[in-house]
């Protein structure tokens, strides 16, 4: 079982991923993931790395 801290951390990650989907940086392969970068997401990560 998860501790409440772990459950809260998971919830925050899920919310962050959902937000990235609405920003078209990630796409969910199924309803509950896994997720992949979109073309736009790949461009963003490349800019981050520079």
């Amino acid at each position: 079982a998860l501790t409440s801290e772990e459950a809260q951390a998971n919830k925050i990650k899920r919310q962050a991923a959902d937000r990235l989907v609405t920003m078209r940086l990630l796409k969910a392969m199924e309803v509950d993931g896994p997720w992949r970068l979109t073309d736009l997401g790949r461009e963003y990560v490349q800019r981050l790395a520079q």
Binding site: K11, A16, A17, M29, D32, P34, R36
Partner: peptide, 25 residues
């Protein structure tokens, strides 16, 4: 983006796919 979101983006980039635990019901 937030640091959390950037972290997820980098994780997805490095692994190819991003897997997150399913929330407890």
């Amino acid at each position: 983006l937030t640091s959390e979101q950037n972290q997820l983006m980098i994780q997805a980039s490095q692994s190819g796919t991003l897997h997150l635990p399913i929330e407890d019901p």
